[in-house]
Structure formats: C-alpha cells, structure tokens
C-alpha cells in the first residue's frame, strides 16, 4: 500500500482504533495502530507519520476522568515529540475519547464533562460545518449538515468564557450540533487548535462511511484529513 502513513494511537481500553484504521484505509491512508506504550518506547514513529489520530473508546475505563490517564501517558512519555509533530503543521485529530485526551493533554483548550442528563448516549446527530479552515473540514463547505453518530458519556464541551471568546474570534469552532444532544457550550461538537492542524470532535466520522450502515457523511471529513496531510507534506 502506498497511502498516506497514518498513526492511530490507542491506550488500554481504546476500542475505536480498528474502526478508525479501517475508515482511514478506505479514505486512502495507510494506517497503523500503535499503543501508547509502543509510541513511548519508540517516539520516532511520529517522524514518519503524516496523520496522527487518537481513537475513541474508554482508555483506562475513564478512571480519574475521561482521557486523563492516556493523556498523562502521552504527556509524560512523548510530550516533546508530539509537540514537535504538531509544530510541523501535520494533522492530528482526536475523536471522542481521543478529543478528551487532546484536551487533557493540553493540545486543545477546554474540557469534556458528563452529558447533560447524565446518560451515555448512542445516537446519530446532525452537525453543521462552521469553518473549513481546519485539517478535518478543508474539503467541506460551511453550512453543510452532516449526519454522524455520537457514542459518549462525557461529550459536554466546556471552557472558560475568555477561551470561548477566543475560539469564536479565531474561527476555531469547526463543527456545531444542529440540535445539541449533550449540553455542550455554544453547541460545540468539534474545535481546532490555533494552528488549525489539531482537531478534536466528539462525533465519529469514522462510523459514517457507508450509506448502507446509516450515513456516509463522515467521508468528506476523512478526505479533508488526507488532503491536509498531502498539503502539509508539500509545504
């Protein structure tokens, strides 16, 4: 395979890594799943990656806060290498538990708290594309409404008021819920970093890749990721 090399990061209890690898492969990437411990043992894996994705699931069973422990492993083990990777402008995404990891690791602002209603929620929601200036939405169109599954307990995004203002001012809110399912502040479903190459989102685009399975609306997002990876490599 000669696809774009993609690293799918998993920790103990991550369970979307295979779904995500399959979806990335179908979108044209050449994904490999790497456990956080393996990455810590060999941080040079990041050097060859053109996409880094933190997959969803229940790393460490959500003990001590969703994403907290895996974020700690990454921060302590490969914090510098990850910072270097991000500085190159190459895309990094975190989906669901991966988003929680990215906020806990300080790669994205804010935090994810328990859903309003205090229930795990598995359903399909409508997302509106709010910005195309991110590695995950570059091929989409502002205003597009995408049907994408959510499956989470702690997806209620929150942040300090000045952070929210900054996110709004800098066009960092890339996806919003059309009908907010979990109480997220400002209907936020996904945000990007100031550098626009780190994106975190609660919904699962990797689970929306087939009309037969309910929706193929995740495909443009994954295509954006691939296109951004190529653009970053060319830059």
């Amino acid at each position: 395979m000669t696809g774009v090399p993609a690293l799918v990061i998993a920790g103990p209890g991550t369970n979307r890594d295979r779904d995500l690898a399959l979806a990335l492969a179908m979108a044209g990437a050449d994904p490999s799943i790497v456990l956080a411990d393996q990455l810590v043992a060999d941080p040079t894996l990041l050097r060859d990656a053109r996409i880094v994705a933190v997959a969803g699931g229940f790393s460490y069973g959500d003990a001590l806060g969703a994403g907290n422990m895996l974020a700690l492993d990454l921060r302590v083990g490969v914090g510098e290498a990850l910072a270097e990777y991000v500085a190159t402008g190459r895309p990094m995404i975190g989906i669901c538990n991966g988003f929680q990891v990215l906020t806990e690791a300080g790669l994205l602002p804010g935090a994810l708290q328990k859903n309003r209603g205090l229930k795990f929620l598995c359903t399909t929601v409508a997302l509106r594309v709010e910005s195309t200036a991110s590695v995950l939405t570059s091929e989409a169109t502002v205003g597009d409404v995408l049907r994408v599954p959510i499956n989470h307990f702690e997806g209620n995004y929150t942040c300090a008021p000045d952070t929210l203002s900054a996110l709004q001012a800098n066009d960092q809110i890339v996806l919003r819920y059309v009908d907010n399912p979990n109480g997220s502040i400002d209907d936020i479903a996904g945000i990007c970093s100031e550098g626009r190459n780190v994106v975190g989102l609660m919904p699962h685009p990797e689970r929306a890749i087939s009309d037969l399975l309910g929706s193929a609306d995740g495909v443009p997002l994954l295509r954006s990721l691939l296109a951004s990876a190529s653009a970053a490599a060319a830059a």
């Binding site: 369970n15 979307r16 295979r18 779904d19 795990f120 929620l121 598995c122 499956n151 399975l213």
Partner: peptide, 9 residues
C-alpha cells in the same frame, strides 16, 4: 440509547 449499539461499525 445508553448502550453503544454501533461500536465496531
């Protein structure tokens, strides 16, 4: 809706 009935895709 409290059960993840979609995981594994």
């Amino acid at each position: 809706h409290r059960y993840d009935h979609e995981i594994l895709g």
